[in-house]
């Protein structure tokens, strides 16, 4: 083992430690570290009907629709935030055309929803806000089980693509 190899191993270790450290602190808003990207996930606030942003550090190749959706569906890492997507919801398909991302979710997204316009706005914009923070995504079109729907549970118009909704985010949680 020559000195160069030892140098690489040491550098690798330092990177790993930094990566791990940044991952540990992903619940906070700052994301530092080497060789990571930040993704923003929007979850429900514990005490209001709005959304809060949680940033996570991921490796560059994970900054993509399927992995970010998976993170979003898995829910927040802190008990201060709430998952606002009905359990059992799965991403069936996705497609990117120009700046519009089409996401096709399984029927649980609607069937398992507790109802209420505030809760519906939370669910819809938890997805839309998260996705529109991904590079190149401006609008999100939601489908349920492959079909275009009027609404999820009777309020928000899903027949057209939606854009980031800043008013749904609790003050002080965006930068």
């Amino acid at each position: 083992m020559n000195r160069r190899t030892i140098g690489f191993v040491a550098l690798g270790l330092i990177l790993a430690v930094l990566w791990f450290w940044s991952g540990m602190h992903s619940g906070k808003s700052e994301v530092t570290g080497v060789n990571t990207r930040a993704v923003s996930l929007y979850f429900g606030a514990a005490t209001s009907e709005l959304l809060v942003r949680e940033q996570r550090a991921v490796s560059p190749e994970e900054v993509g629709v399927p992995y970010v959706t998976e993170l979003l569906l898995a829910g927040p890492t802190t008990s201060e935030y709430l998952s606002v997507i009905p359990p059992g919801t799965k991403l069936l398909d996705w497609n990117m055309q120009n700046d519009t991302l089409t996401l096709d979710f399984s029927g649980e997204l609607a069937d398992g929803h507790p109802g209420g316009s505030s809760a519906e706005l939370q669910t819809v914009f938890s997805i839309v806000n998260t996705m529109t923070e991904l590079p190149g995504v401006k609008r999100v079109q939601l489908l349920i089980a492959g079909r275009n729907v009027d609404t999820l549970v009777g309020h928000v118009d899903l027949s057209v693509p939606l854009e980031f909704a800043a008013e749904m985010v609790e003050a002080g949680t965006t930068q």
């Binding site: 429900g44 606030a45 514990a46 005490t47 209001s48 009907e49 709430l82 998952s83 606002v84 507790p114 109802g115 209420g116 316009s117 505030s118 809760a119 939370q122 309020h155």
Partner: peptide
């Protein structure tokens, strides 16, 4: 005419949209 619900189950009050 609607009644509301939210995920936190802590929200209260009347709003008109």
């Amino acid at each position: 005419i609607h009644f509301n619900a939210s995920y936190s189950k802590q929200a209260t009050g009347t709003e008109t949209l």
